[in-house]
Design a protein around this nucleic acid. Structure first.
Lengths: 222, 222
DNA sequence: GTCTATATCTCGATAGAC
DNA sequence: GTCTATCGAGATATAGAC
């Protein structure tokens, strides 16, 4: 589930559906920025370009609006871990995962912020649901972890704790989106040409994680 | 500045200072969890075990309380990037930085959450101040970046963009603290023995970033 | 479906007794 | 320095005209 289902107020002429969608998208942004309690309905209404009472007309209460937003975000959250399942050289699998994952987060930055806000608030829901998904053998969320296990068993890569590695990859791919204002201050490329920065970041993350920093001769000695 | 300066209400018998400190520490936690707007004075008062009006007695307004908290957090924020300046083999410098940095964030998890909340809200302040610190030659915040540059110039490590690398190291060291509820659900060790998990994580981050994943023979070929 | 007006409630802040 | 009581502002929610 990645798209917001329009409610019972949908109109054929699409004007109403458009208003509802604009409210919903504004809510995605504001809830992501401020969290559930910090968000203000006035701010959502302003960003949607509508008057506040319309918000109640379409979603009745702040609680219900948040629930609709959270359900939407949660669908994107699970989808983001889907890795294309393929079984080539591990370098290719890793590169494809980083590419796919970073692109997904770039498209769903509000979801990433919402996920972080939920965890900072101490809410265990996301962890519980993700753990359940990871326990299901062959689930899309497990493809990457299984690829790591196969690669270590084959000796294709050196032995590594696959949970720690997943955490490192995800951290390197997500954290800079969460910290964008600071990243843009420290890195001119992120400010001037964000897409180019994102592509450079994908390449850097792949190279550091796959090859590491040590000069080749030094690693050969080790 | 890493400790909260007690206000003008300090009493010699330390009862008052104790109450003020308990309010302040509760405020650190609640503002970290919920952000400035999401935090409720009632929640802070409950966590401090006091009645709400006492909060106003010591800090007058929510705004002033937040400013005191933010000043405290900001001091910790700048301190966290201080790297012990030494010039041994890069492997040692990297290991020391990871060790120092992770220990610091473990001791100041509220600061890390606050930093993330500020960035998610779009506040440029942290980025501006950190950028200023990074531009000052020889500042403690720049020691690590300078160590990376020296190591690449010497051929001690392969060529790498030092800003991207700093971002990767910081991401790998901080993100799991921000995502603790999820990490604890996915990783039994993080739940059962958190300190052991943190030590294992330091080691993993060092090894992946320094040596990478590729098997030693494969890297020697590359 | 959208607007104006208003009711209701939560939260921040103050007054005053002790 | 701490409590009870209360005020006033700001936020959510509803009523009713158009």
């Amino acid at each position: 589930m990645t798209t917001h289902e329009t409610g019972s107020h949908a109109a054929p002429d699409s004007e109403a559906a458009d208003t509802e969608a604009r409210i919903f998208e504004a809510a995605l942004r504001v809830f992501a920025r401020k969290g559930k309690d910090g968000a203000r309905l006035q701010e959502i209404a302003d960003e949607a370009g509508i008057h506040r009472p319309l918000l109640h007309y379409y979603f009745r209460t702040k609680q219900k609006l948040y629930e609709a937003v959270a359900a939407h975000m949660f669908g994107q959250f699970l989808d983001s871990f889907d890795a294309p399942s393929h079984d080539g050289p591990f370098a290719d699998v890793l590169r494809a995962f980083i590419d796919h994952y970073v692109d997904n987060i770039r498209e769903h930055q509000n979801m990433a912020k919402w996920m972080v806000a939920e965890n900072m608030a101490g809410n265990p829901f996301l962890g519980e649901r993700l753990a359940a998904a990871f326990e299901t053998e062959g689930s899309p969320q497990r493809h990457m972890e299984e690829a790591i296990l196969r690669a270590t068993e084959r000796g294709e890569i050196r032995p590594v704790n696959q949970k720690q590695l997943m955490l490192t990859i995800v951290s390197a791919c997500v954290f800079f989106f969460i910290q964008l204002p600071t990243v843009k201050m420290l890195n001119p490329l992120a400010r001037d040409d964000f897409d180019a920065f994102v592509e450079a970041r994908k390449e850097h993350v792949f190279e550091v994680i796959y090859y590491g920093l040590a000069s080749r001769e030094e690693v050969a000695d080790a």
